[in-house]
Simulated assay, not measured.
Amino acid sequence: MARLFMQVLADLGHRVDIVSTLRSYNRKGDSGHESETVAAAAIEVERLSAAWQADPATRPDLLFTYHVYHKAADYLCPALKRRFNLPYVIAEPSVAPKREHGPWAAGYRQAALAIRAADILLPITELDRVCLSAFAGADKVQVFPPFLDHEPFAAAADARGRHRDAVKRLHGLEPEKPWLLAVGMMRAGDKIASFLRLAEMLKLGMDAEWQILLVGDGPERKTAEQAFAFAGNRARFTGQLDSQDLPGLYAACDLYVWPAINEAYGMALLEAQAAGLPVLSVRTRGVPDVVRHGETGWLAMDDRPETLAAALRGILGDKELRRSMAATSIRHVAAHLSMTAARQRLSAAFAPLGLPA
């Protein structure tokens, strides 16, 4: 998503420079790590300040940061904004008041400082918009839905038959039975939790006809393989695939399935729809910002295995609904969640700053 924002900025005629590679991410809330980040950031602020003062032509017109929250606070831009009186924008900020105390307290305080200092906040989801508006003021908060370059996915959808033949040959799937797909990194935490919940759901749905391709790899792959052992050859692990192979795979399948445990919004959910693959997921967090329930996919009310299994049976039993959702998905992504839509939104968001657009 960060790279996509950079591309949109460039498309609008802005020169995009990564002025620092300082990484503030603090996965475990380690106080020593946070202290090291503070010290390194202070050095970076002085380095950049000296460079911009020595050559004012290198000074930016705007500070832009992506994904500021308690685990990854912005220690650079608030200080640089104060020194040079520069406009400051944060894309995908989020604030979790419950982190004000505890291991991430220092990161929370700095993230809060940055969020309040920013001129414009571009949260990805409606959930974050509500929280940020109460925290920093609604006037500078604008929802900026997730987006992608939809064209490779739309092209894959146009060639669905060819991609379906290729997937059948490669993975030995039976064409008369629905093909399910899930894509995700097999790592500890929420990702493997989603794979395990998916396995529980499918175990309850063994009475339905389905086959599933599980795309991804990582340190928890064996855990995932053990969880899906009950399915036999109905579940096939592909390993990690190159990004250029995914559009065709999405287009070839019949339903994307993902429980989205603690998922911010789910980029793969957006990719699936861009390729005309309807989604079965859960009505939680930012997923409803990506999937339109009943139109581009189906969102279960909760992530209990029995709830998901019941939803799966319903969708697999309604081929016409899947076809309708597939067509609507492609149109919706092209109109609202594409690079073109993102350029229009960002141009409008920048207008109050007096920047070229």
Rank of each mutant, 00 (worst) to 15 (best):
G137R: 08
R129N: 01
R160L: 02
A157H: 15
A159L: 15
A156C: 11
F153A: 04
H171D: 11
P175M: 07
S133R: 08
A155V: 14
H150E: 12
K177A: 05
V141A: 06
A157R: 14
E176G: 09
A157F: 14
C131N: 09
F144W: 06
A166W: 12
E126D: 05
A156H: 04
A159F: 07
K168Q: 15
V167Y: 02
V167I: 15
L122S: 06
D165Y: 11
G172F: 05
R164K: 09
A154K: 12
E174T: 14
L127D: 03
S133D: 11
R160D: 02
A138W: 04
L127I: 03
P145C: 03
D149K: 09
I124A: 09
H150C: 08
R129C: 10
T125I: 03
A159W: 06
F147L: 02
T125P: 03
F144S: 01
E126C: 03
L132N: 05
K168R: 15
R169A: 07
V143Q: 12
E151I: 05
P146V: 01
L122F: 04
I124P: 00
L121R: 09
P152Q: 11
H150G: 03
D128N: 07
L122Q: 09
H150A: 11
D128R: 00
R160E: 02
R164V: 02
V141Q: 04
P123R: 01
H171R: 12
V130P: 00
A154C: 11
R169S: 12
R162E: 14
Q142I: 11
F135P: 09
S133H: 05
I124Q: 04
L170P: 10
C131A: 08
L173H: 02
G161N: 00
F147I: 02
A166H: 10
K168L: 14
V141C: 09
K177F: 02
F144V: 03
H163S: 11
P145N: 05
L127S: 08
